[in-house]
Simulated assay, not measured.
Amino acid sequence: MAAARTKTAKLSPVSQLQGVLVVLDGRTKIPTAELLTTIRAMVSDALAVLQEPDSTKQKIAFVLLAIQQSTEVVVRVVRGKEITRVTVIDQPLYHWALREIHALAGAA
């Protein structure tokens, strides 16, 4: 059992995320198509961020991904006017992302 833990710990985050995609592509029992689509999009976004070679671009992409994951945007048309409502669904992640944006802006 200890050997299984050390083998898992040696895998890079990219390898682990790619493994999730391989499992999702397999023909096993899958919960729902909507859940699979959501998981696939999240993992693909994370892989794109992790594989960015430039560390500054990687940090910016990660912060943007955090903002996307921590908010929900709903656009409605009311009396001919487009109304956009943004709801923060993960406060700690959203606040971390805003702090990082301010830190990046101060470093420029």
Rank of each mutant, 00 (worst) to 15 (best):
Q69C: 05
K10R: 10
V73S: 04
D25H: 08
V74R: 15
L35R: 10
W96E: 12
M1P: 13
Q51G: 10
A33C: 03
T87F: 04
L104T: 04
A48F: 01
Y94M: 07
R79S: 05
S44K: 12
I83Q: 07
A97H: 08
V75D: 05
I30E: 06
Q18F: 08
S15W: 00
T87S: 10
A103C: 06
V22H: 05
V86C: 15
T28R: 08
S12F: 01
Q58I: 07
V86T: 15
V23S: 05
S12I: 02
V77K: 14
G106Q: 15
R40M: 05
G26M: 01
L50E: 01
V43R: 02
P31S: 03
A3D: 13
L47T: 06
G19V: 00
H95F: 01
V20K: 03
L98E: 13
D90A: 11
M42S: 08
A97L: 08
R27N: 09
V78E: 08
K29N: 12
A103M: 07
L64R: 11
M42Q: 15
K7C: 14
F62G: 10
E52N: 11
A97I: 03
S15N: 01
R76E: 14
Y94H: 09
E72Y: 13
A61N: 11
I67S: 14
Q51N: 14
V14W: 07
H102F: 07
V74G: 14
Q69M: 08
G106I: 13
E100P: 07
K81L: 04
P13E: 04
E72S: 15
E82C: 12
T37D: 07
V73L: 04
A107K: 07
Q18Y: 06
V75W: 03
P31D: 01
K59R: 15
P31E: 03
A46Y: 00
L64P: 09
V14Q: 11
L65H: 15
R27C: 02
L104P: 02
R85D: 14
D54W: 04
K10I: 00
A107W: 03
S12C: 03
R40C: 04
Q91T: 10
V14F: 10
K29S: 09
Q51A: 05
I101F: 04
T6C: 05
I101R: 02
W96N: 09
I60H: 03
L64S: 11
S55I: 01
Q68K: 15
V23Q: 05
E72G: 14
V23K: 03
T8D: 09
L50F: 01
T28A: 07
S70L: 12
P53L: 00
E72L: 13
P31V: 00
L98F: 04
V49T: 12
V63W: 02
G26I: 00
A41L: 06
A4T: 14
Q51T: 14
L36V: 00
R99K: 10
T28S: 06
V77P: 08
A103S: 12
L47V: 05
K57I: 07
Y94C: 05
H102L: 09
I67R: 14
L24P: 08
A97D: 13
T32Q: 02
Q91W: 06
H95C: 03
V22R: 08
V75S: 06
P53M: 00
Y94A: 07
